[in-house]
Amino acid sequence: MNNATLIHIGRFIGFLIFQVFILKRLSIGWEGPVFFNFILYPLFIILLPLRTPRVVVLSAAFAMGLLVDMSYDSLGVHAGASVLTAYIRSWVLGWLEPRDGYNVNHSPNKARMGAPWFFRYASLMMVLHLLFYYSLDAFSPVFFVDILLKTLYSFPLSMIFVIIVTYIFDPET
């Protein structure tokens, strides 16, 4: 077990604790789509190294989602959304591939890939994750408009924390 793996395991725990003990308390909801919901834990999936096997990405995302679900009392909803996000990650990466390709030993983070690229990547992943999450939460295409509105409200709130965390830690692995 090398250093990078330990860092990512530590990050897993860190994001989990931050999401469950701090961001969950900041979330305030009213009836309807107006809903302060801060979702940060997908950043863990976003930052996983490029060479991580797909099965590992999926399993880690599932574990993260399941643990978040346990505190949010919505067993399966975050897990399902995380697995979808993890699965879609390689396609998003393929989409945003720079002209000279990726260095597979790197992680897709701001320090390695630059701020414009990273925030484009992170915001795309966050939008997709929120869309998946609210879809599974509503669980019916009937609430299509609600799903979109909730995604729209939560996205900037969550992105604030993504940006803050990225600029505070700015990790290289």
Partner: peptide, 10 residues
């Protein structure tokens, strides 16, 4: 994993 999640949700 998605199937497990959906079963858990339901």
């Amino acid at each position: 994993l998605e199937a497990v999640s959906l079963v858990l949700i339901v």
